[in-house]
Structures are given as C-alpha cells and as structure tokens.
Design a protein around this nucleic acid. Structure first.
Length: 433
DNA sequence: GCCCATGATTACAA
DNA sequence: TTGTAATCATGGGC
C-alpha cells in the first residue's frame, strides 16, 4: 500500500497534462490552471484521488463499495494506463539497483560442507571418511565398527531431519509465493502490477526463505561438527587396548628393556600386529618407559613374567637351531649363522623369535639389544633345560639397564654374551632417541 | 563412589 | 622431531 499511496501522491502532485490516454482522451490539468469547462473534470479526478487516498481509513464494506464505484468510473482506464506507465519507469530504476545479487560466500561454504559430510547431495555413505579417520584414531579395533555404525546412524538422522526441514521450508516458500502471486494478480485488476513486479516480489520472498534455509544449514553444520568432534575425540572415547595388544607391546618392551625405543619400522609392525596406530604405539612406549622407571619394583614381576616367556620361546628357537645345525652344518657350533648361541640376526631376539614363530617381524631389521633375555637364555641353556619360571624368588630379570641418571643405557655390551655377528657395544637400529 | 590403571595430551628440553 | 614428565580424562574393579 505504501507504493500505491506514493504513486497516487505523485499523481496528485504532478502535472499530467499532455499525457495521451486510452480512447484518445487527454487527462485534465490540475486545479488552478483550467477554465470553467475543465473544472468539472478536475473535480472528478480530485474526487477519485481523494477516494483512493482515504480508502484505508474506511471500513471494509465502505471500501468495497468505493472500489466498485472506482472500477466503474469512466476515468478508470485512463488513470490505470498512466499509473502503469509511471510504475514501469520507476520499477526499472529499482530493479537496476537490486538485481543480480552475487552468491553468498557463507551459503556456499555451508553447502560445500554439507555436501562433503554427505548431509546434502546424493546419499552414498556420507561421512565415511570422517568415520574412517576416527576409526584409525581410536585404534581400529572391533569396537570401531560399532562406533562407525553409530556415527553413520547419527549422521543419517541429521540428514533426515535436514531434508525434512528443507522440504518443509521449500513447500512453505512455494505456497507463500503462490499465495502472493495470486493476491498480486487479483490486485492487478484494480491497480497496475506488471509481471516483472510480480517476479520481483517472488524474488524477495525467495531471498527471505533462503535466509531461513541458511539458518537451517548452519545449525545442521553445527550438529555435524559436534557429532564429528565427539566421535573423533579419542580421549573422550578412550578404550583400553586388547589383552593381546598389551601382551605384544609388553613382550617387545621387556625383550628390549636395555633400549626400549622401537624404530619407526618396529612401531609400524607393532601397530599392525596390535591393530592400533603408530602414535598409539609411541604413546604406549612413552608411558611405559616413564612408569617403569618411576616404579621398577612394581614392574619387576611383570618383567620376570615376560622374560620367562621370552626365554621359553627362545629356548625352543635355539633348540630348533641346534638341531638344524647338527643336521646341516659340520662346522663349529658358534661359527656362521647358526649354532647354539648364534642367534639369528644377531641378538634381536624378540624379532627373531617372532620370525621363528612365523610372525611378521622378519626382515624388519629392528635392532635392539636384548642382553637381559640373552642372559636369561644362557641361564636356561646352562641349566640344560632346567628352566625355572622366574617368578619364585630367583629373578630372571634384573633391571640393570637404567643408568644412574635414570635414563636408559645405550645398548651396552652384554657382560656375559657377545653376539657372534655383532661387536661389543654396538647400537641397534631402534635407538631412535 | 572411590581408587587405581591406562591411554592421551601438553609443555618443555635436547 | 622425539622423548620426558606432568597431567588430564576415562574405564573398570571393588
């Protein structure tokens, strides 16, 4: 109504003389510039304008009656035509300033994110990348498949809500647009409304609804981010490693107690075997070194246990090697690559035991001194098979690898055993520190 | 609910 | 960059 009033005010104040109108009728000049003949027409136009101007102050019935009277007035076609012309001219200038809005960068960002997360666009296991990353971060154990599906389920839920809401908005937008268009078409019978003006109005409505949609997209993005951060937050979802994984890590730790710093390759192998990540292996060793050093006494029993286990495995390995040597090699027992103390690959017993057991440490060349285990093995061999489990007072392992400063010694020369293939004091490849 | 174990994080040093 | 030390946060047994 504002625009209408404005235009009518313009009409009322502007000299319309000279405008040709439908039916070859010229509009009368305004008041004060006419002769006696024009006074009648002036009065007519003045009346019409007054009626239009006061139409909002009247009751509905009155207004309807006046509207009808206006529609039937003989001057209506002429006025209507002039109004159309003026509106077209003013409309052009307004459109020129408003059209061709550039795409909103924020909206584009939101759209891209929703697409990347699999919320919008075709459904093809959206968010699987995030879920996979989280699975890797949290250890890749069987729990992850549960968490993965949990994540997917929640994402699907968000997706459904998003699409339902979006559909609702679009439906409401269409309904409202249709309604407004109908209203405008209806009104166009009584006041000049061009199709372009209707189009512009539709554009305004769509812009309003798209701003609402943007809010929806924003909150959906937030929901996805929260879900993702919760899922990816390993600390929040801390799970203890499996017993088997801890066993493997402990075996490595205690069999490399003189230098418990696995190389990158060893970490990768351990990670693979334990179904955890390399950084988790690093964390584990970091924690283990610190906690072991802080409380050696507490870990003594554990150390003995793993030393014993290692010794048993090693004894089997050595027995097998001896047997192999007896059948295959006529040379001196300690020469060459086999023999009673000629441990394969020069003393990285853990690795070699794994190899002998058919595990995957072969070829990884993860060197570390294992003096304690070699000592243990010697002990076992010297006892000619009289192996004690090491838990009953006679400790198989003594924590002699920590130096006075509390740091680990660098792969020191074993006091009683010299590796046949390695010189004294040699440092293995896993001295990553 | 408390307490301990344990995986992760952070600040710092070498 | 890696390791250490301290700390946080959670899980699990009691």
């Amino acid at each position: 109504m504002d625009e209408q009033s404005r235009m009518l005010q313009t009409l009322a104040g502007v000299n319309l003389a000279g405008h040709s109108v439908q039916g070859g009728m010229a509009l009368p000049p305004p008041h004060g510039h006419e002769g006696a003949d024009g006074d009648g027409r002036k009065q007519d136009i003045g009346d019409i304008l007054h009626q239009i101007m006061t139409i909002t102050d009247q009751s509905l019935d009155e207004a309807q009656a006046k509207k009808h009277a206006l529609n039937c007035h003989r001057m209506k076609p002429a006025l209507f035509s002039v109004l159309c012309e003026i509106k077209e001219k003013t409309g052009l200038s307004i459109r020129g300033a408003q059209e061709e809005d550039p795409p909103d960068p924020q909206l584009m960002r939101l759209d891209n994110m929703l697409l990347a997360e699999g919320v919008s666009g075709p459904e093809k296991g959206g968010g699987s990348a995030a879920a996979a990353a989280a699975a890797a971060a949290s250890g890749g154990s069987s729990d992850n498949s549960i968490e993965h599906s949990d994540y997917r389920a929640k994402l699907t839920q968000i997706r459904q809500i998003y699409h339902t809401e979006l559909e609702k908005y679009e439906q409401a937008c269409n309904e409202f647009t249709t309604h407004v268009m109908n209203l405008l078409r209806e009104q166009s019978r009584t006041r000049p409304i061009s199709p372009k003006e209707i189009e512009r109005m539709v554009g305004i409505i769509h812009r309003k609804f798209s701003s609402i949609q943007m809010q929806l997209k924003q909150s959906t993005c937030e929901a996805v981010m929260i879900l993702r951060s919760r899922f990816l937050d390993a600390r929040r979802k801390r799970r203890n490693f499996s017993k088997q994984a801890t066993e493997i890590l402990n075996e490595y730790f205690y069999s490399h107690l003189s230098n418990p710093y696995p190389s990158e390759e060893a970490k990768e192998e351990l990670a693979k075997k334990c179904s955890i990540t390399v950084s988790q292996v690093s964390n584990w060793f970091g924690n283990k070194r610190i906690r072991y050093k802080k409380n050696i006494g507490k870990f003594q029993e554990e150390a003995n246990l793993y030393a014993a286990k290692t010794a048993v495995t090693a004894a089997h390995a050595v027995a097998a090697a001896v047997q192999n040597n007896q059948t295959n090699s006529p040379t001196t027992p300690n020469s060459g690559s086999s023999g009673s103390f000629n441990l394969p690959n020069s003393g990285d017993m853990f690795m070699n035991m794994q190899s002998l057991n058919g595990d995957s440490y072969q070829g990884s060349q993860v060197g570390a001194n294992v003096q304690s285990q070699v000592d243990t093995l010697r002990h076992v061999i010297n006892q000619t098979g009289g192996y004690s489990d090491g838990l009953g007072g006679n400790s198989l392992y003594s924590p002699h690898n920590l130096n006075a400063n509390g740091g680990w010694q660098d792969a020191t020369t074993p006091s009683s055993v010299t590796s046949p293939t390695e010189g004294p004091g040699s440092v293995h490849s896993d001295t990553s520190n």
